[in-house]
Amino acid sequence: MPKKPLSGLTMLVVEDVTSIRSLVVKLLERQGCDDVSEAADSETAWHHLKRRKFDAILLDYELQSDDGVSIAWRIRGDDGLINQNVPIILLTAHDEAMIVEAAGKAGVDAYLVKPVMPDRLGQRILNAIKHRQDAVGLPPGGTEVDWKN
Rank of each mutant, 00 (worst) to 15 (best):
W46D: 07
R74E: 14
A102D: 15
S65Q: 03
H94E: 13
P87T: 11
W73P: 00
L59H: 02
T92V: 14
K105T: 02
A106D: 13
M98A: 07
I99T: 02
A106K: 09
I57Y: 08
A56E: 06
A106G: 12
P87F: 12
D95H: 09
P87M: 10
G107I: 13
A110I: 00
M98F: 08
D78C: 08
H94K: 15
V86T: 13
M98I: 03
P87D: 11
S65D: 15
R51M: 06
D60F: 10
E96R: 14
A103S: 14
Y61H: 10
S70T: 13
G107P: 11
K50E: 15
L49Q: 07
A56Y: 04
M98R: 13
D67K: 01
E62T: 08
H47N: 13
I89G: 05
I82G: 01
A72V: 10
E101G: 02
I99S: 00
Y111K: 07
D78R: 05
K53I: 10
S70A: 14
A106C: 13
A103M: 09
F54C: 07
S70P: 03
D55S: 11
E62H: 13
D109S: 15
A103P: 09
H47K: 13
L81S: 03
S70F: 04
D78I: 01
D60M: 10
Q84T: 09
R51D: 09
T92R: 04
N85V: 01
R52E: 12
H48S: 07
L90H: 04
V69D: 06
G77N: 13
Y61F: 14
D79P: 00
R74H: 06
I71C: 10
D55C: 06
D67N: 15
W73E: 14
N83H: 04
D66Y: 07
A103I: 10
L90M: 15
A106T: 10
A110E: 15
M98L: 02
G104P: 08
A110V: 01
D95K: 09
H48A: 06
V100L: 14
H48W: 15
I89W: 05
E96L: 08
L90Y: 06
A103R: 05
V69Y: 03
A97P: 00
I82V: 12
R51V: 00
Q64V: 07
D55K: 06
G68T: 04
H94C: 09
D67R: 02
I71G: 07
A103Y: 11
G104F: 09
G68D: 05
L49W: 11
M98Q: 13
H47V: 01
Y111I: 12
A56M: 05
E101C: 02
E101I: 09
E101F: 13
Y61R: 01
D78P: 03
L58E: 11
D55R: 04
G68S: 07
R51F: 01
A72L: 10
R74C: 05
D66E: 14
A106Q: 12
L90N: 03
L58H: 10
S65K: 01
L63E: 00
F54K: 05
E96G: 05
L90G: 02
A103F: 12
D66V: 00
R76M: 07
R76E: 09
K105Q: 14
F54Y: 15
L90C: 02
G68A: 06
I99H: 00
G104S: 13
V108Q: 08
R74D: 12
G80H: 11
A102W: 08
D109G: 09
R51T: 10
